[in-house]
């Protein structure tokens, strides 16, 4: 059986790998290509590249970064940020992305999900949801890297997107992102039990116990991590080893 995927998430601004807290207060970490290669060598299952200012400026900086990364990284790459149309997707796939993550443009026009899924297959179409807690058990979807409210309920949106043909959901908790306090397990559980497509938990990974919680209680199919690996708190190899020792069925090796 397939295992839990360990995904390195690289948020990019311009030419730099950056990291924020609650998707804000972005701090420069370094060269995204070097970090991606490092994570590939450490045994990451996938790489996610997110251009965090693309939606704001209506453009995508990632083409060149992805093109170069694809030359020496032979694991799947998901790319998001500023994807607005089928032709944007085509361009990203052409330079070496395997999947695209869409948030803002899909909220504005949900049919885009179907258009992408029909043209390139559901497996290419990752719906990115940025969720913020409203009240107990309810979350609101945000766009533009956590800047804009939508009034849309996260669970309803996840279900609708799955019906429209999304192949996967990248679920980022704005409340937990960058805090190292652990994934928002109740959010992840609510979404992963509402849809049959895989759910990637993102935001809050501070240690292996968090990973264990979100996969066992939250039923996440994959976990995205940033802070913990960018700041060398743990390598992906160490995370994998500890997870396996703790009984989490992570994939590979």
């Amino acid at each position: 059986m397939a295992g839990i995927r360990l995904i390195a998430r690289l948020d990019v601004k311009g030419a730099n790998l950056i990291k924020g807290i609650h998707l804000e207060g972005l701090r420069v970490i370094g060269d995204p290509r070097e970090y991606a290669r490092k994570y590939y060598e450490q045994g990451a299952d996938e790489i996610i590249y997110m251009d965090c200012v693309a939606s704001l400026y209506g453009r995508n900086n990632l083409t060149e970064i992805v093109r170069h990364a694809a030359e020496d990284i032979f694991i799947p790459m998901t790319v998001g940020g500023g994807v607005r149309s089928v032709s944007d997707v085509e361009m990203l796939l052409r330079v070496g992305a395997d999947k695209v993550a869409v948030n803002t443009a899909a909220v504005a026009r949900p049919e885009l999900i179907s258009e992408i899924a029909t043209r390139f297959g559901s497996q290419c179409m990752v719906l990115s949801i940025e969720a913020k807690n409203k009240e107990k058990g309810r979350w609101e979807a945000y766009t533009d890297n956590g800047r804009e409210k939508t009034g849309i309920d996260v669970i309803e949106w996840a279900k609708r997107a799955a019906d429209l043909g999304a192949g996967e959901i990248l679920l980022t908790s704005i409340d937990r992102e960058g805090t190292r306090k652990g994934y928002q397990v109740d959010l992840v559980k609510a979404v992963s039990t509402a849809v049959t497509i895989p759910v990637i938990a993102s935001g809050g990974m501070g240690g292996v116990d968090h990973l264990q919680q979100v996969t066992e209680e939250g039923k996440a199919d994959a976990v995205a991590m940033a802070d913990i690996i960018h700041y060398n708190r743990m390598t992906i190899g160490e995370i994998r080893k500890e997870s396996l020792a703790g009984g989490v069925k992570v994939s590979r090796r």
């Binding site: 397939a2 295992g3 299952d45 297959g121 192949g167 049959t196 895989p198 199919d221 590979r252």
Partner: peptide, 12 residues
């Protein structure tokens, strides 16, 4: 449908 996530996306 129902048994496992479809599509299968991942390592096996």
């Amino acid at each position: 449908e129902g048994k496992t996530a479809v599509p299968q996306i991942g390592w096996n």
